[in-house]
Design a protein around this nucleic acid. Structure first.
Lengths: 303, 303
DNA sequence: TAAAAATACTCCATAGGTATTTTAT
DNA sequence: ATAAAATACCTATGGAGTATTTTTA
């Protein structure tokens, strides 16, 4: 009879493509893993792995089995969560993922709120880009993720927490800096600076102003918003700043102007996503409320 | 860590509502099952079962866990089938369900065809009414079912095999017996006799002639078509006969007339259904072909 | 007091570890 | 010759059995 243990080992083998490293990943010895894989092959009546000196690759059957194994293992994780879900609200372990353009501004307030209202919650936080967070959520190594919604991922449930307007960051001397800003004016403006590819803030900003002429974009290898703002302050162009970052980056530099856009104000919507199959929906709904409270709108600070 | 073993035991407990009988069902001793359930409760951090002298009932948490456990166990079964699916076509064990109004007429030919073309198939057949077949298919104790399609069950895939026209069975003296029959004439006909409630042929016939006045129906506790035909022969009314049954029941009785309906000919569609998650789709498609070949249209025998 | 489940204990199957051999490049 | 996986052999954990006690209606 197939065991969960065997499924875990096969999963490790699928990930590593190597018996030795798979064993290490699974926390057992290489022979132990080899034996379990072999037993599985006997049980299923076909080869799962192609053994090579360079390592191990899964056969088509092996890949199919591994894919199903992953789903089953996620289902098992969710099952284990049921206990916590039926305990008090937001108690026990919870692995949360957050995108980088939100984490530093939201987490301080959120963690404080959780500490105060749900001291028995054992929260672990991972900060990464959306694509990776989605993968880890699907795989079950994260329980929920704070991202820009909608994600549009089947199997996930999303709940919006708050809208985060984009502000225009322009050099003090720019003509844009002293007028009420509307989005279309960007078309005639200086160059629009954005974060490097793969960073979700880039896509969100692009989506917010889809009318922008692609040829006038400039990408920088900058991972951080503050680097980008340095460039703006130096007169290299303009950029969009999520207002959630205001408190940290604002008026520090006199060469910078931050302005709200006139309606329709471009914004991204920040929300929480979790697996449909997760039994902790109540926890997550409560978490969304806390996220909303922890997202301070300090928009009075700007014109 | 939760084990599949524990999920199986919980499932048995959910089914029986009794530790002793659950243990018997699982093929182990009562203390062994008790201990696994207890370990599970510790692992999940909550009570799964309410212990009473009269037996055991699941708590809300227990029901939720049991429901998920069932899904996981079905996924494990399907995974085990993968091996057979990657072997030759239609090899290894296969549990097939068939509705009673099809089984006796279809199976002889089908089994012969399977024996000839797929001698390595280890087929087990269960004959039961649609509702039960659907349950067993969902639970994984059947791999595929031959039923009247469409079933409209989420999680199932269906493939039509053949259309089975309904014939009119009337007493030789009936005015219907000597005219080309059209369905609407049934409205002015003798009473329509049908099988007892729950028998799928009843629903199929009713669906085929939805125009019929409900008040003119008569149900009999008859489980078998031949009993029903005896009543028709005795002049008690008319009924619908699936043409697949022709070879067995036809012209044996001179008091009976079997007639085809004029267009649009009422019929039921017989097909195969299996779980979406089953890896043996290829097997099932091949089986559908064999079913089609095994369903002889002996319609020449009637006017 | 009777039925059901929990506990006590013993045993053994099997997963896992270490050491070593085989295999393929 | 080297790296990877399989094999051999031993150990120990934990699942299961029997016998018994506890619980509750």
């Amino acid at each position: 009879m197939i065991s969960l243990r065997q499924l875990r080992y096969l999963d490790a083998l699928a990930v590593t493509g190597h018996f030795g490293r798979a064993a290490e990943l699974a926390g057992i010895s290489q022979p132990a893993l080899s034996m379990q894989i072999r037993d599985m092959e006997i049980e299923l009546g076909g080869a799962l792995v192609e053994r090579k000196t360079s390592g191990a690759t899964l056969t088509p059957l092996g890949q199919e089995v591994a894919a199903r194994a992953r789903n089953i293992l996620v289902a098992i994780r969710d099952l284990q969560d049921l206990g916590h879900a039926h305990g008090g609200l937001l108690e026990g372990p919870l692995a949360l993922g957050v995108i980088p353009s939100v984490a530093p501004y939201l987490l301080p307030g959120l963690l404080a709120g959780l500490q105060e209202h749900h001291p028995r919650l054992k929260l672990t936080v991972r900060e990464s880009v959306t694509r990776r967070l989605v993968e880890e959520l699907a795989a079950g190594s994260l329980d929920a993720i704070i991202v820009s919604v909608p994600l549009g991922v089947e199997d996930f449930v999303e709940a919006a927490a708050f809208d985060d307007p984009f502000l225009l960051a322009a050099p003090a001397g720019s003509p844009l800096a002293d007028r009420p800003s509307v989005l279309t004016e960007l078309i005639e403006a200086d160059e629009l600076l954005l974060l490097e590819d793969g960073h979700c803030l880039r896509e969100q900003a692009l989506q917010a102003c889809h009318a922008i002429d692609q040829s006038r974009l400039r990408s920088f290898g900058a991972t951080s918003l503050s680097t980008l703002l340095q460039l703006v302050a130096a007169g290299q162009g303009v950029t969009l700043v999520p207002s959630i970052a205001l408190a940290s980056v604002a008026a520090a530099d006199p060469r910078l102007r931050l302005k709200r856009f006139a309606d329709p104000e471009p914004h991204r919507r920040i929300g929480l996503a979790w697996r449909k199959s997760s039994p902790r929906e109540q926890d997550f709904r409560a978490l969304v409320d806390l996220i909303r409270q922890a997202a301070p709108a300090r928009l009075e600070a700007v014109a």
